[in-house]
Design a protein around this nucleic acid. Structure first.
Length: 155
DNA sequence: GCCAACGTTGGC
DNA sequence: GCCAACGTTGGC
């Protein structure tokens, strides 16, 4: 299985690359979008690379990297009553929502801002640089991943 | 905080 | 199956 690459968004008020550096690894629960769910359930594999993207941040952008350390498994928070991600329509017998675990990779010296991503040749096709793109889990190519890492390391 | 763009829901 | 209404996302 060839290694794949992903970009995952999170608001800093929920979780940051600094949190991941401290924790070492974390579970990526709470995704309630079918397209993102499909990527996590079907296409993510241990060892895949992840660009960690801070949304609604100042500035928004890629703050570091991670890797998949556990492939897709049912998101139990969807059927935990009272949990903030509880989804009453779904039962434990037929999981609808999935999550993965990610491990810390590296923290960039500074955020690679969205503005920079948009202005960098070779990154034009990234979903995150498209207007109106809201997908919180999205595939990126190997060259896009490597380009962003290079931008991050030089900061 | 504003608001445009998007995804989902539900009436018909 | 259409589409208006609604809730959410996320840049600014």
């Amino acid at each position: 299985m060839a290694k794949r690459y992903w970009l995952m968004k999170c608001e800093p008020s929920a979780y940051t690359i600094e949190d991941l550096e401290r924790d070492g690894r974390t579970s990526w629960e709470g995704v309630r979008n079918y397209q993102a769910r499909n990527f996590m359930r079907d296409d993510m594999h241990v060892g895949d690379g992840v660009l960690f993207y801070a949304s609604n941040a100042d500035p928004s952008g890629v703050t570091g990297t991670a890797q998949i350390v556990r492939a897709g498994y049912p998101d139990h928070t969807a059927w935990s009553k009272g949990h903030k991600y509880f989804d009453h329509a779904k039962g434990e017998d037929s999981p609808v929502w999935y999550m993965v675990d990610i491990g810390f990779g590296q923290r960039f010296g500074a955020t690679v801002p969205l503005e920079t991503l948009k202005a960098t040749p070779g990154l034009e096709a990234m979903a995150v640089t498209q207007k109106g793109s809201r997908l919180s889990v999205q595939p990126v190519t190997k060259s896009e991943f490597q380009l962003v890492v290079r931008l991050g390391r030089s900061r």
